[in-house]
Amino acid sequence: MKQITGMFTGLICLVIIILALAWKLPSTAPQRHQGPWVYGPAEAKFTIIEYADLECPYCKEYTPWLKLWVDGQKDVNLQWHHLPLDIHGPNALYEAYLVECAGQTGGNDAFWKAVDIVFAQTAGGGQGFKDTLRLPGNEHGELDSCARKDTDVKEAVRQAIEAARRAGIKATPTLVITHNPSGKQVTVEGAADADTLTSALDLVAVQEQPAAAN
């Protein structure tokens, strides 16, 4: 009887130890990443916020060029802002969910890679994809499932749309160019060329005042 009691006590102690160790183990739940989704140096002096729609034909042509232009600037980054337009139907909204899912599950680089792939494969103008979209992380439909069901993703896109409306932005692409140290901004509607972008940076840059002479 004493032997059985001892074994039972030892078993209880073992269970308690296992539970204590499990309590201390870090969570294995996948990490969720949040935007803003930034391309280029995080601490850049200037940020170009692009309000864009993944079914917008102009964005499809312009965003890849804009990324290349940012690559050539040492003090400028690009920030994506979802604005799927009603005229481009449900495909624009669904694609916004899809790339947001890619970002929230895979991080900033995964977001921008998803944007590149969607622009490369969509027909644009609200037509969507003729074939199955091939996205990293969507091999078994994980991102599609996320885009259909994930309430956090849908809320993130909804908030982006509402923020654009509050700012009076209705067209894509629209750029808001910000001088980060001062917060000074200028809005440029449409696919701005290199000269326009450079002029906008000059416009928002705040010149430091020279020190007063004693």
Rank of each mutant, 00 (worst) to 15 (best):
P36A: 07
G40A: 10
G40R: 03
A42H: 09
A42E: 13
K45S: 15
F46C: 00
I48T: 02
Y51M: 06
Y51L: 06
A52M: 14
A52Q: 05
A52N: 03
D53G: 01
C56A: 01
P57R: 05
T63G: 08
P64Q: 04
W65D: 13
K74A: 15
V76D: 00
V76E: 04
N77M: 06
L78D: 11
Q79M: 11
W80G: 03
W80N: 04
H81F: 08
H81W: 06
H82W: 07
L83V: 03
L83Y: 08
P84K: 02
L85D: 08
D86Q: 14
G89S: 05
N91V: 11
N91R: 12
A92S: 11
A96I: 03
Y97C: 07
L98A: 00
E100T: 13
E100M: 01
C101F: 00
A102I: 09
G103L: 03
Q104E: 14
Q104M: 15
Q104D: 11
G107I: 03
N108V: 04
N108I: 05
A110Q: 11
F111A: 06
F111I: 05
W112N: 04
A114G: 13
D116L: 09
I117W: 09
I117L: 14
I117F: 04
A120S: 14
Q121C: 09
G124H: 09
G125K: 06
F129K: 01
D131M: 12
D131Y: 05
T132G: 12
P136T: 07
G137D: 04
N138Q: 08
N138M: 02
E142K: 07
L143I: 01
S145H: 14
R148I: 08
A156H: 05
A156Q: 05
Q159Y: 07
A160C: 09
E162R: 15
A163H: 11
R165F: 12
R166K: 15
G168Y: 00
G168K: 02
I169A: 02
K170W: 14
K170A: 15
